[in-house]
C-alpha cells in the first residue's frame, strides 16, 4: 500500500469502483524465537543503550520477551577501551562510562543464553542539522522539512528519527549523498513509509543521525520489509554476525524540534 504505484492503483480503483479491504485469518507457522538486537552508540552524552529481545509468533500479542542476564560489551577499538554494559530494565543494557567519538570504530559483543553475536560499526563524522520547519506537501499532508549541508567528501548517509510528541514514529527517513554530494539540502521528509502523520498541535523532533553505509543498507531494507510489496519479502540486511535480527549503529546525532501549526 505504501509505494507510489500501489497508491495509483488504489486511486484508480477507488475512484472507478471501491476497492475492498478486510481483515482475514491466515494460519502462520511459528518459527523458533530469534534474538533481536537494537544497539545504538552515539556522540551524545551517555549512557548508551543496547536492547535485547526475542521474536514472538504472529498470533501472540505485541509483548516481546526481554533477554536478561546477557553479557554485553562495547569496545572502542580506536581508543582501546572496553565497557561492560549493565542491565537496567529487563533487556536494556547501558554503558557505564563510554561516550561515542566520531571516527572511532566500535565493536559489540553479546553473549546471551549461550549464543554469541558480534558487530562492528564506525561512527561517521558529524553533520549539523541547520534547521527544521513544517511544510504542507503537495500530496496534501503535513511534513517536516530539513536543511543541512552535505560535506564535500562522498559517502555520507543519514537517518532521520522522527519523534511526534516525544514518541519515535514508524516513519523511516533515509538519505544519501549519491545524487547531491556537497550541496545544501533543503528537503521535505517524504517517503517514510509509516502510518504516522502530523497534525496541528503536534510537537515534532527530528534527530538527524549520520550513519555508515551498512546501517543505510539496514534501514533501506527495513523499509522494504515494512512495505511488503516486494514479490519476495525478506528480513532487513543486518550488520550483526551470529544470526540475530536488528542492528548495531554507531552514529552522530543533531536534533531540532518544532511545533506543528
Amino acid at each position: 500500500m505504501k509505494r507510489s504505484h500501489i497508491i495509483y492503483i488504489i486511486a484508480i480503483a477507488s475512484f472507478i469502483l471501491p476497492s475492498c479491504q478486510k481483515v482475514i485469518h491466515i494460519d502462520l507457522n511459528s518459527a523458533d524465537p530469534k534474538y533481536v538486537i537494537e544497539g545504538n552508540i552515539s556522540n551524545q552524552a551517555g549512557p548508551q543503550t543496547i536492547k535485547l529481545s526475542k521474536t514472538v509468533s504472529f498470533e501472540s500479542s505485541n509483548v516481546f520477551p526481554a533477554v536478561s542476564s546477557a553479557l554485553v560489551t562495547v569496545t572502542d577499538a580506536t581508543a582501546g577501551i572496553t565497557d561492560t554494559l549493565q542491565e537496567g530494565a529487563a533487556g536494556y543494557y547501558s554503558t557505564v562510562s563510554m561516550t561515542g567519538v566520531p571516527g572511532h570504530m566500535y565493536q559489540l559483543y553479546v553473549k546471551a543464553e549461550g549464543k554469541v553475536f558480534t558487530s562492528t560499526c564506525t561512527m561517521p563524522m558529524p553533520v549539523t542539522l541547520d534547521s527544521l520547519y513544517i511544510s504542507k506537501s503537495v500530496f496534501g499532508n503535513t511534513r517536516g522539512a530539513i536543511v543541512y549541508t552535505d560535506p564535500a567528501a562522498t559517502g555520507n548517509y543519514y537517518y532521520f528519527a522522527e519523534y511526534k510528541n516525544s514518541v519515535l514514529t514508524d516513519n523511516i527517513y533515509i538519505r544519501s549523498d549519491e545524487l547531491r554530494n556537497g550541496q545544501v539540502i533543503d528537503q521535505v521528509l517524504s517517503r517514510g513509509g509509516g502510518e504516522s502523520e502530523l497534525n496541528t498541535g503536534d510537537y515534532l523532533t527530528i534527530a538527524m543521525e549520520c550513519i555508515d553505509s551498512a546501517m543505510y543498507q539496514y534501514y533501506f531494507t527495513l523499509q522494504q520489509t515494512k512495505n511488503q510489496n516486494a514479490a519476495t519479502p525478506a528480513n532487513p540486511q543486518s550488520n550483526i554476525v551470529g544470526g540475530a535480527l536488528g542492528y548495531f549503529s554507531a552514529h552522530t546525532v543533531s536534533s531540532k524540534s518544532v511545533l506543528v501549526n
Partner: peptide, 10 residues
C-alpha cells in the same frame, strides 16, 4: 511472516 519483533519502537 512466521513471527514478529520490535525495533525502533515499531
Amino acid at each position: 511472516p512466521s513471527g514478529k519483533y520490535n525495533i525502533n519502537n515499531q
